[in-house]
Design a protein around this nucleic acid. Sequence first.
DNA 1: CTAAAACTATGTACGTCATACGTTTATTAT
DNA 2: ATAATAAACGTATGACGTACATAGTTTTAG
Lengths: 276, 276
Amino acid sequence: MTYIVLEWGDDTDGTAMATRDGKGADLRRSLTLLWEGGARGQRGPRPRLTVERIAHAAVEIADADGLEALSMQRIAAELGYSTMSIYNHIPSKDLLLEVVADVAAGRPPELGGETDFREAVRRWAGALWAGFQARPWLLRVPLDHAPVGPNQLAWLDRLLQPLLAAGLVGGEARAAALHLTAVVRGTAQISADMSTARGTDGEFPRDGVELARALAEVVDPDGYPALAAVHAAEIAGDDLGHRRPDGVLPAELSFGVDRFLDGVESWTAARTSRDG
Amino acid sequence: MTYIVLEWGDDTDGTAMATRDGKGADLRRSLTLLWEGGARGQRGPRPRLTVERIAHAAVEIADADGLEALSMQRIAAELGYSTMSIYNHIPSKDLLLEVVADVAAGRPPELGGETDFREAVRRWAGALWAGFQARPWLLRVPLDHAPVGPNQLAWLDRLLQPLLAAGLVGGEARAAALHLTAVVRGTAQISADMSTARGTDGEFPRDGVELARALAEVVDPDGYPALAAVHAAEIAGDDLGHRRPDGVLPAELSFGVDRFLDGVESWTAARTSRDG
DNA sequence: CTAAAACTATGTACGTCATACGTTTATTAT
DNA sequence: ATAATAAACGTATGACGTACATAGTTTTAG
């Protein structure tokens, strides 16, 4: 897997690429950067720096010190080059981050032997979850568009397989894949620090319990009746909150994913019985 | 709804608040900042700046020029104060962003008259989706922990109501709410620029079609069999891809949400028939 | 074999950012 | 009146992304 910049032009056009939040989410631009072109330049010195080396250094930095420590200067220093040399290989930090995110994602899990589509999906989600646990900084890489990197696409492809096998047709499978990706990402994002944080009074923080307690100190429960009810159940210790992870999926993910898969299953079942 | 800083201390403790990605996701700290305390300082000049004024100015800036234009200097300039005056009211930009996100979220939709829990959830999701369309920069505000702001909690509470009404118990309802929030957020994030971007060859970009085409130019389909199959269906124009939004929910969200609600429904149905 | 073309790397410089710190100014409790 | 206290300001610092001009190196055309 090599990442080579084919060309990225002069941006002289610059008309419409400021999309309200700037940072030009130019798909074509990302694609040319992310995909290998093999053939390298013809004349001139053989490049000693490459996009790949840069990206790997960046991943190491982020792994070690988090995303906010990932600066162009730091990368250059780590590799023993001047800051500006980086820009001979990458047009901007935004695009670098795209490459870095793809490299850091790594290859998707092997689900080969799995015949039960539900179990395959659950294992896929578990692997993604584990990935976010291992590299929490990935959750903070700004998302500009649908995945286009080789690894990101591989993850997507792996998920689509069991979904198609389950009987979903093209657009449905895509929607389901997006759905599942979003759920894992979102859940990881929200429970990221809750799992690592220790309770302020030394107590062990189990899922939402700590949060519920903290909120209870400050928030008027009358304004949030449903929330108060849920919190009460949670503090009392209901069936879901304290359940241990059942295999690869953490409890807070498991329920939602399973309900979704239930829905998918009955959807495809209904179609088969409908169409014959 | 007023936001008042009660106190934010000296951070002399500073032991454990560097959570690998820094930016101290200190829950207590956020809570004291986000929730109104009423009683203002006793001595000294009456503050002319307030957290509220600052937050509202910030929202205006982000609305106008995107999140990357939102700097402390810009806020101060907009309000006619010196940059550092802001720090008399907000301890850091990170915390400011939390307040800003809550203010920008606004009040949740009224679902009062809705008896069908599915329709209530769908309307809630549609409203959240619309919110992200109106303020795409909200998707880029870094998420540090579960929602704790008054508006964010109000949104959560509104969603929990129909979920509890549907028969989910405490922890399940919480998981389902997290699930739905994540799905809307994630879908909005990924289809954000796809909906606003024009096709590069002047053609209208319909959902994933443009992306599928662009990828097809570069990616070897053999490496991604399932993906290629889905893309082929999408370009050909399958049942889902070109469907118009059915009401408040866009097509790419609708399928996933509906399957999830199917699953929830059969889950609670199974419980009632089980427990009597 | 040479010379120029093509490309890589570097150094300097600029504008912007968040924010630490010390000073001044306005207000209120005594 | 006066002391206490908080609010606002000015200045300064170090880090950031990156524009731009320059210097250096290697391949290929003649």
